[in-house]
Each structure stands twice: as structure tokens, then as C-alpha cells.
Design a protein around this nucleic acid. Structure first.
Lengths: 106, 106
DNA sequence: AGTCATTGTTTAAATGTTTAATAGTTCATA
DNA sequence: TATGAACTATTAAACATTTAAACAATGACT
């Protein structure tokens, strides 16, 4: 596989994290599996919309889904997803702190 | 700051990684600082385009830039960026392997 | 079996966002 | 002032998101 193709696929995985609702879901699923309705209860909004967002993440291999009777359960595909997300959150928080410090010096 | 706002900012950081050219740049800057023209030599394409992509990452705090005379040098804002990116790449590679194994079983 | 409520997915249209390409601008230095 | 380095503005095309309605699958009740 060419490097360009790897970069493209890698970027697609990153884009699959690039929505506030999807980040909220990943936060929710840190350490447990939840069914669709449980997730919807927390996030709110339309179920069709949530279903599409979950589908985006499942297709890119960020989430696993499993049907059990009438319920569909979602979970992170691996702990690496949670770790990567935590690191990105730290990058964000570090930057917010830097900005705050800068402002306070003025 | 509300959770929703954190999720939105977090998603913006993720989206700032969501382009193949930007992933390529992060790969390039793993362990060194490079100036604009050095990056352009590797990635190819239009200057204006590269400049916009670098600007997206700099604004979101993924890259640092530093002007020295006529040159602008870029580097990762922190090692956490490189780590997070490596983890995402692993998630991708693990998924590609899973797909391959599935196909080979058929 | 037939009907109903619940759970979730799919589709389509409207709206919103991102990107690539072009042209033009700024800044440093020779 | 001419040149190379990098940034900015604009815009059409491509892509993502939201919404609402239609659809499918399961299980409960009679």
C-alpha cells in the first residue's frame, strides 16, 4: 500500500473523531458498552442523527457494534482509541491553559 | 467551560488532523523542525495550499511556527500530538489487518 | 397467527463546511 | 527595487450534517 493511501485512511480515521457528538460518545464509552437508547438518553437529539454518527465511527473501525435481541450495543474497538482521544484532549487543555496564561500576563 | 464546549473544541482538534496532507506533515515533523519550503519539497502541490493546511494546524495548537528571517519553521506543538497520531495509525493498521484476515478465511 | 410498541437503520432533501485553485499581498534581504 | 518566501482572499466544487419520514426487526399481548 502506498504512503499516500495510508495518509488518506489515517485522515479518515481522524475525521471520524471530528464531531462534538462523536467525541461525546467516545467519552461515554471509555470503559463500558452501552446500547443505542442509553447513548441517546445522554446525548439527546434525533435518533436518526445519532444512528448516522455511530455508523460513521463503526465504519472507520473506531467503534464495535453488537446486536443482542432488540438492542444494539456499542463499544470502543480498542483501548487505543480511548488513549488517542485522551492525548488529544490533553493537547487541547494544554493549549487552553497557555492561552489563559498569556491573557493573564496582560 | 461547559462539556459541550469542550467536546466541540476537542472535535476541532481532531478535524485539524483530518486531511491526508496534514497527516503527512505530522509524520514529517515527528522528531524535527522543518521550514515551509522543506515541507513543500516533500509533499509537493501548491504553496498556497500547504500554507492553508499548516495554518489550520497552527491555529488549533497542533503545530508551532517560528519565523527566522525569511524562513518560517514548523514543528509539533508537543510530543502528545505525535503519540496520539501514532495510536490512531495503529488503530487503522489493526483494522486493516482484521479485514485482511477475514478475507483470507474465505 | 395478528397487532402493537419499541429499537434502530435507511433514505432524501436542504443546509452547512471544507478544499483546491487562482490571484494578489506582505515581508526580508540582496 | 527586484526576488524569493510565505500568507491571505475568493470562489466553485466536493463533502458532511441535519431533519423528517419511511422502513425493518424484535418481542409482548391477545
Amino acid at each position: 500500500m502506498t504512503n499516500k493511501k495510508i495518509f488518506e485512511l489515517h485522515a479518515e480515521v481522524c475525521r471520524a473523531l471530528g464531531h462534538s457528538l462523536r467525541i461525546e460518545v467516545i467519552d461515554l464509552l471509555q470503559d463500558k458498552e452501552l446500547c443505542f437508547t442509553d447513548i441517546l438518553d445522554v446525548t439527546g437529539g434525533l435518533k436518526s442523527n445519532l444512528s448516522q454518527h455511530l455508523s460513521v465511527m463503526t465504519k472507520k473501525g473506531i467503534l464495535k457494534s453488537r446486536r443482542d435481541g432488540q438492542f444494539t450495543y456499542f463499544s470502543l474497538s480498542s483501548k487505543k482509541v480511548a488513549q488517542a482521544c485522551r492525548l488529544m484532549r490533553e493537547v487541547l487543555m494544554d493549549n487552553l491553559k497557555k492561552q489563559k496564561d498569556l491573557l493573564e500576563k496582560m
